[in-house]
Nucleic acid binder design. Structure first.
Length: 464
RNA sequence: UCCUCAGUAGCUCAACGGCAGAGCGACCGGCUGUUAACCGGUAGGUUGCAGGUUCGAAUCCUGCCUGGGGAGCCA
């Protein structure tokens, strides 16, 4: 008897009509009546369950089957019957149902509503629920779509290092990587820890960004992207931050800020289209149970041109809006979350690129504009999630970069190689960082980052 | 780190100074086509932890722990 996955059955049920088949899977629900019953079976290969009908007359172990509990693993054989008039397109009339792995009655995942908070506590079981099944299936597809987008454009995928010695980026708090004994580290004469005796012979940490390395490769391959884990030891307690997350960082050479925004906009639209098309079942589920306006909003995004405004214009718009803000709107101050939300959700009601931020609130590597006050930075703000992309045109002029580093107190000896990119064939280039989980949240409507990461790592929490 | 809300049955919640309760789930029974089935019944509690106030505390007070939301930082 042919063993078939649920995915295959759903794709081509007609081809199996009236045939005897076998399926393996886990019981999501089991309802028995006097002489027949129904099992909703999920085998993990598709978001949906299939229905197995069992009858007393056809089974030797009817009472046993009727008593099989939610969560149990079973092997079921029977004839596939098309049921076009019923809610499900087909079902399996069981000739045999065999218990493979029992699940006692204290199985925490029951056919009822569970809160996300509770499900986080059972992170080893939550992938078996509808929500997380959909989320992680989409996560997988989205990762693939990102590669597809860049690969189709000829970008080279760069594995930027996860352990690095550079801490000069100022992109966040670092996780130290060391093999020194924390109770008895070697000390230098001045009493500080002597990292020259550490594994790498210097201070090292987990990467907070692959950007600087991506620039190296962009100036060799023209168009590159990184896609990998990133670590920030920030003490942030919000639904949008995790200590370990994935980031996509394209870097393009012979390109300016406008090319950068074009790329970002095209990418976001591509990813939305891909998910709407390739993960239709899951997206319908999110639309129905997580966020009622999700699909409509995403389609709207795909069909709209993202707004592009300068920081100065943003400040003017915010002042004109007459909204009450907790933080004052003033040129020179960074945009607060409330300002960003107002811009993207109220004033423009679509994604907004904000460019030309004051130099003082941005990073040293961003290209200084001719006004000497602003830099060629860009943030992409989207409704609901806020900042999803941060990027810039990089400072390609060696002398200006050197001045910037002095201005921001960055040790140029540590970044000698970064400086040399400007000395040898330096060229204008740009790039951005996209938080993978942020866009996943945006695409699924799931509002807490802990629910789009398989095993989330956040301040004070590293379970499973 | 700051602000704020909440911790009561496996889960979601009610009771808000006077006998610890419901729905869902579990278990038992019923039901000839169910769809998170339906109907009837049974079991299930150190009310987050430690102190305090009170004749009496789930309820009021203090501290701690855990979780949610907001802010900062950022992706």
């Amino acid at each position: 008897m042919e063993k078939v996955t649920v995915r295959r059955l759903i794709a081509e049920a007609e081809n199996y009509a009236e045939q005897e088949i076998t399926v393996d899977g886990w019981i999501r629900n089991n309802r028995d009546q006097k002489s027949f019953g129904f099992i909703a079976l999920n085998d993990g290969t598709h978001f949906n369950t299939i229905q197995i009908v069992y009858e007393k007359d056809l089974l030797t172990n009817y009472d046993q089957v009727a008593a099989m509990r939610v969560g149990s693993a079973i092997k079921a054989s029977g004839k596939l019957v098309l049921t076009p008039e019923a809610r499900q397109p087909f079902e399996i009339k069981a000739s045999q149902v065999q218990l493979v792995g029992d699940s006692p009655p204290d199985y925490p995942i029951q056919p009822k509503r569970h809160s996300r908070e509770f499900l986080r506590e059972v992170g080893h079981l939550r992938p078996r629920t509808n929500l997380f099944n959909a989320v992680f299936r989409v996560r997988s597809r989205l990762a693939f779509a990102i590669h597809q987008f860049f690969q189709d454009k000829g970008f080279v995928y760069l594995h930027s290092p996860i352990i690095t010695a550079n801490d000069a980026e100022g992109a966040g708090e670092l996780f130290r990587v060391t093999t020194l004994d924390p109770k008895d580290p070697p000390l230098a004469d001045d009493g500080s820890v002597d990292y020259s005796n550490d594994f790498f012979g210097k201070k090292t940490n987990l990467t907070v960004s692959g950007q600087l390395e991506a620039e190296v490769f962009a100036l060799a391959f023209k168009d590159v992207y990184t896609f990998g884990p990133t670590f920030r030891a920030e003490n942030s307690n919000t639904p949008r931050h995790a200590a370990e997350f994935w980031m996509i960082e394209p870097e393009i050479a012979f390109a300016d800020l406008n090319d950068n925004m074009d790329l970002a906009e095209e990418m976001v639209k591509y990813l939305i289209n891909e998910m709407l098309e390739k993960a239709e079942t899951e997206m319908d589920f999110f639309n129905q149970f997580v966020d009622k306006g999700l699909k409509e909003r995403l389609v709207h995004i795909v069909n709209s041109d993202f707004a592009r405004i300068t920081y100065s214009e943003a400040i003017e718009e915010l002042k004109k809006s007459n909204q009450k803000f907790e933080y004052p709107v003033a040129w020179g101050n960074d945009l607060q979350t409330e300002h960003e939300r107002c811009l993207t959700e109220k004033i423009y009601q679509k994604p907004v690129f904000v460019t030309g931020y004051p130099r003082d609130i941005k990073a040293f590597y961003m290209r200084l504009n001719d006004d000497q006050q602003t830099v060629a930075a860009m943030d992409l703000l989207v409704p609901g999630v806020g900042e999803i992309i941060g990027g810039s045109q990089r400072e390609e002029r060696a002398d200006v970069l050197e001045q910037n580093m002095a201005y921001f107190n960055i040790n140029k000896e540590d970044l000698w190689w970064y400086m040399e990119l400007r000395r040898y064939g330096g060229v204008q280039h740009a790039g951005f960082g996209l938080g993978f989980e942020r866009i996943l949240m945006y695409l699924t409507g799931v509002s807490n980052i802990r629910d789009v990461i398989p095993f989330p790592r956040t301040v004070n929490s590293c379970e499973f």
